[in-house]
Design a protein around this nucleic acid. Structure first.
Lengths: 207, 207
DNA sequence: TTATATACCTAACAATCGTTTGGTAGATGC
DNA sequence: GCATCTACCAAACGATTGTTAGGTATATAA
């Protein structure tokens, strides 16, 4: 029976008696899963691949997670958390609406393209790659997108409906960048600046 | 030996002696594969799924295609062909640069969202879902993107580099729309109009 | 020292995967 | 009518999949 096993990376470790062995390789498991899910995708990455990359056997992963889907959800949640934290910091760094938007886009792109595997998994793995976990993945993503939407709140726009269209346009372009982005050619900050400049003239002239 | 089998849907049927049985279900195979690849993705769709949907057994698919990858390439190529034809027709329907762009976007979106399964496969399936076929898929997609780039050729833009950024911005937003689009709420034409309007003011005022 | 919880390993399970082999009904060419 | 080619079916192949059962070394709590 494994009813007493943790089955997930919980925030509160619960009242534990013995701390067990000194080596808990849960972090390595998450890192390995994030890297492989990002590189190859969810479906073609096997539990044996993840185990090997983390230095353990496939079966041992089930001490930490009840299923492959649950492991994906854990990686995905960490990815959303990191992107959200980066964008939140960017939003707090300025008061000018267009400047805030550009900073938010740059933070989003950096988390998506350069930072870590976790952020890339959020874009790479589609919810219906894991049907049983799809609802949880969508909820996580929606939570973040509500945060990103705040980056558009204060923009002075001309037409009704522009805000929603602008959000869909920008977020789509940013997320799709994972398809064509190659490090070295463009920087996330430069791309964000170009994208926002193309849209900035939507607002009435500042002067 | 199967050396004489067709192994693909060729344009020229070659000098055939006997036409075999009256029922050639290759079209049904392609339709079924396109539908399943779009609905579930490439990796999780099995040859048995495709065979069942086309009314035959999994092994029989190998009369038409040498591998699952080859079947994907055939579906993908048909998808690219359809999107390309739609955009090409849109480009020929107008001479005003911004109007041409809006029509091209509407055609791209329609092919991607409403028309058929084939077009959606091109966006849904990522080349590295099938590593051995990735090069062929990328070549097909690049061919189309060169066509789409023609929709931006005549736009009067302010800054150097705007054309590339505009292409990446627009194409990304259009392709990502598959993630959030729900039929009924927006129409492809309406979305294209909103997206292009947000960018149109990039150009100097026409008057 | 004994008991217990942790964090694994070993070995297997049934199911499913893409693919292959060999056979065959039916239409056509001669 | 005979041979040939087409477009399948039937049945299996070995490999791989996610997952589980049972055992074990280590560290802490008492």
């Amino acid at each position: 029976m494994r009813m007493t096993a943790p089955q997930a990376a919980r925030a509160a470790p619960a009242p534990r008696r013995g701390t067990g062995r000194a080596d808990n390789r849960l972090p390595q498991v998450l890192d390995a899963a994030a890297r492989l899910f990002r590189e190859r995708g969810y479906a073609v990455t096997s539990m044996r691949d993840i185990g090997a990359a983390a230095g353990m056997l496939a079966g041992s992963l089930y001490y930490h997670f009840a299923s492959k889907d649950d492991l994906l959800v854990a990686v995905y949640a960490e990815g959303v958390r990191r992107i959200g934290a980066a964008v939140e910091a960017a939003l707090a760094a300025s008061v000018d609406p267009w400047d805030r938007l550009e900073r938010a886009c740059a933070a989003h792109l950096t988390a998506l393209l350069d930072d870590s595997d976790y952020g890339q998994v959020v874009i790479r793995v589609r919810p219906d790659d894991a049907p049983d976990a799809a609802a949880r993945l969508i909820a996580l993503r929606d939570g973040y997108e509500r945060l990103f939407a705040r980056a558009l709140d204060d923009l002075p726009l001309r037409h009704r409906g522009d805000r929603r269209a602008l959000r869909l346009l920008l977020l789509g372009a940013l997320n799709w960048s994972q398809t064509w982005y190659r490090p070295g050619r463009d920087s996330p900050a430069a791309l964000a600046r170009q994208f926002v400049r193309l849209l900035r003239s939507t607002a009435p002239p500042a002067a």
